[in-house]
């Protein structure tokens, strides 16, 4: 399910919002998101979706006048999904031009932020490296995290001295500790991130991941369930939590159901097409 996979990945979300028009609809007229115009346009380019018992639909990249440009599997990994997005933009540079808002970005920080959201990390680093601001250092540490260059990530985090970005620094270090198999450190640090922080759900999610890796599956499930119950709205980390929780209680890939033991915390309809990549334990160093 994409909402628990690529569509909750921050890199994919930011690139989607900057360069694509994301649209979802239900093929069936019984669904709440049924859209007859969309169905007609999609069946015209992907006729197998026109009957009953259709296969799990791919994500389709289309022009406004209905031409199919590319497609990617519903069960693609984040990396595969990003690759298709970038390729379709490379093939269609006319749809990859800067928006008015992007053109209005005048400061290096603004330009760096835009480049970061476009996954153009070479430009982002160029814009941000000479800056003294803490936000630039957080962004640079995240770019290093994406490259799993933990030494560089820590160097940028160590340069941050103000409290304004304290939660971000702690959260980045939680991610670093998990990746480096320092699970106890990750758990302790995640607990310091306040409920009002905008990285709170991420902190609780990765606390559960660290507990899981630390052989504390029951505690991990409790952490994830507590997070789920505490949130009235479901951000990407709550969806990710739903995925991790369901995978852990099922122990192996099985069908999900809206009834019985296989129900997910979110009561999701559908199938878990693949395993949560965050639950692949890092190799001990």
């Amino acid at each position: 399910m994409l909402r628990v996979g690529p569509f909750c990945d921050p890199q994919i979300v930011s690139l989607s919002n900057r360069r694509f028009i994301p649209f979802a609809f239900d093929l069936s007229n019984k669904g709440g998101l049924f859209d007859p115009t969309a169905r007609k346009a999609v069946v015209a380019v992907s006729p197998e979706l026109g009957g009953n018992g259709v296969p799990t639909p791919d994500v389709l990249f289309m022009t406004a006048d209905g031409k199919l440009l590319a497609r990617v599997s519903n069960y693609a990994s984040e990396a595969e999904f990003l690759e298709v997005m970038k390729q379709v933009l490379t093939d269609h540079p006319e749809c990859n031009k800067a928006s008015k808002e992007e053109l209005a970005a005048t400061t290096p920080l603004e330009r760096g932020r835009v480049a970061f959201e476009l996954n153009d990390f070479t430009t982002a680093k160029k814009e941000l490296s000479a800056l003294e601001s803490d936000e630039s250092k957080i962004l640079l540490s995240q770019i290093a995290r994406y490259a799993q260059d933990w030494k560089t990530a820590e160097r940028h985090l160590s340069d941050i001295t103000t409290d304004e970005w304290k939660d971000d620094v702690q959260m980045e270090r939680v991610r670093m500790h998990v990746a480096n198999s320092e699970f106890e450190k990750a758990i302790k640090l995640a607990d310091l991130i306040h409920q009002k922080s905008n990285r709170y759900t991420e902190a609780r999610y990765f606390k559960g991941v660290a507990q899981s890796f630390n052989g504390e599956s029951k505690l991990a499930l409790a952490t994830w369930k507590e997070l789920f119950l505490s949130q009235k709205e479901h951000d990407n980390w709550v969806y990710r939590t739903d995925w991790a929780y369901s995978q852990t209680i099922q122990k192996e890939k099985k069908l999900m159901s809206t009834t019985g033991k296989r129900v997910s915390l979110l009561g999701r309809i559908g199938y878990m097409g693949r395993s949560n990549p965050d639950l692949v334990k890092p190799k001990a160093k």
Partner: peptide
Amino acid sequence: KAKKDQRILMVKPIAFGTDNKGCW
């Protein structure tokens, strides 16, 4: 919007049921 902004549509068809909250 895709026409106006010169952007590509990223279309996710859902095959088996959405609820009235838009969940699937």
